[in-house]
Every structure is written in structure tokens, then in C-alpha cells.
Design a protein around this nucleic acid. Sequence first.
DNA 1: GCAAGGATATCG
DNA 2: GATATCCTTGCA
Length: 199
Amino acid sequence: MRLGRIVEVEAYAGEADEASHARMGRTGRNAPMFGPPGHAYVYLVYGMYDCLNVVCEPPGTAAAVLVRAVEPLAGVERMRAARLAHLEARRRDRAAERRGADAAQLARLPAARLASGPGLVCAAFSVTRSADDGRDLCAGDGSLRLLAAADEAPPARIVATPRIGIGYAGEPWRGLAWRFLDADSPAVSGSRPRQPGRG
DNA sequence: GCAAGGATATCG
DNA sequence: GATATCCTTGCA
């Protein structure tokens, strides 16, 4: 079993939100966003990476939260294997030595970096559009589940920043600080984990 | 810094 | 039916 703690998310507010896939109304792709809350909306970005969203609000209101980074807690080696499988699926035409280099690089990657980005979250947890788009993440018997960490203290420092990669959206949407991350987690996205204290 | 890569939404 | 664009990543 692979288990992780969500340490970075972005909020998307519905059809009025110019940064949201729901901004053009209901389409074939974004239909799960208009469905019941607690279900997954999985989409392909840049032709290469799946991204996982959790639908929020009642049916008809297309709000969602994008899961941008997960701190691995259990099943780290399965995540590493899933990351390698993802690379190999994309690079099956490349030379065999390339795959060997990928495996070696992944083996050196710290566990905290295995799911430190929205595309990497899906690669590490084997989330795909075909298998998981529209899935009920709250179903007790599902293979992909969203759990509440009821007995765990909330992060001491939660940082809010503008959302990533939405420069096409107008104000106020572009400037809203709707990306939230655990500033003390080494698993948040970005090339370097943030250092506490001085920056 | 920027290329890779495929589906999507929009326009004709 | 064609194409500009896209909620990214890893290598130069």
C-alpha cells in the first residue's frame, strides 16, 4: 500500500474562476468537476502528465482542489517503481541505457521528492485518467482513497502563494494566493525545499 | 533556459 | 478538420 500526506494544493473556485478548467462551462473533459464532491477529476497536462483534483461543493458547482505534492509515508519503493514505470511508458522508444540511467537516478532520489509535483503525484501513486477520472475518493473499498488525518497536528506553517501556471487568467484570479503548502515539508514542489528561518 | 508531447477547445 | 494552447518536468 502506498500512503502519503498531502502537503501542497491549489484551490479552483468554479466556472467564474478564469484559471479553472471549468471556466468554459461543462465539457467532456471537465464533467467530473460538476459532479458530486469527494470524487476525482484527473486530466492530462502538456501531453505527458496526469494531474489529480478532488471535486468540492455540491453537484452543479465546479469547484476543485488540485493535489500538487504528497509527502510519502509508506510504500516508498512501490512509488519508486511506479515512477520508473511512468518514465518507461513515455520513453519506450529510447535506448535501453537511457532506461538504466532513469532507474539509477530514481534510486538516488530521496523519498520526499518522489511525489513533489502534481504530475509526479500521479506517477508515484499510479493515478491515470482511464482508471481514476470520476472515481469516488471517499469510498471505503476504493483503490485510491482520500483519508482524514484526524489524530495528526496540522502543519505549523502554511504558506499561501499565487497558483502555478495560470498566467492566462485575468485579475483578480491570477493574483489570488490560492496555492497552499506546508512550509516545513521537504516534499513540496520546486527545485529546493524551503529552508526555515532566513530565505 | 527550453524541448518534449498529446488531448482539448475553438475557429473555420 | 486544423491548430494554438495547456494547472509540467527534466535536461541543456
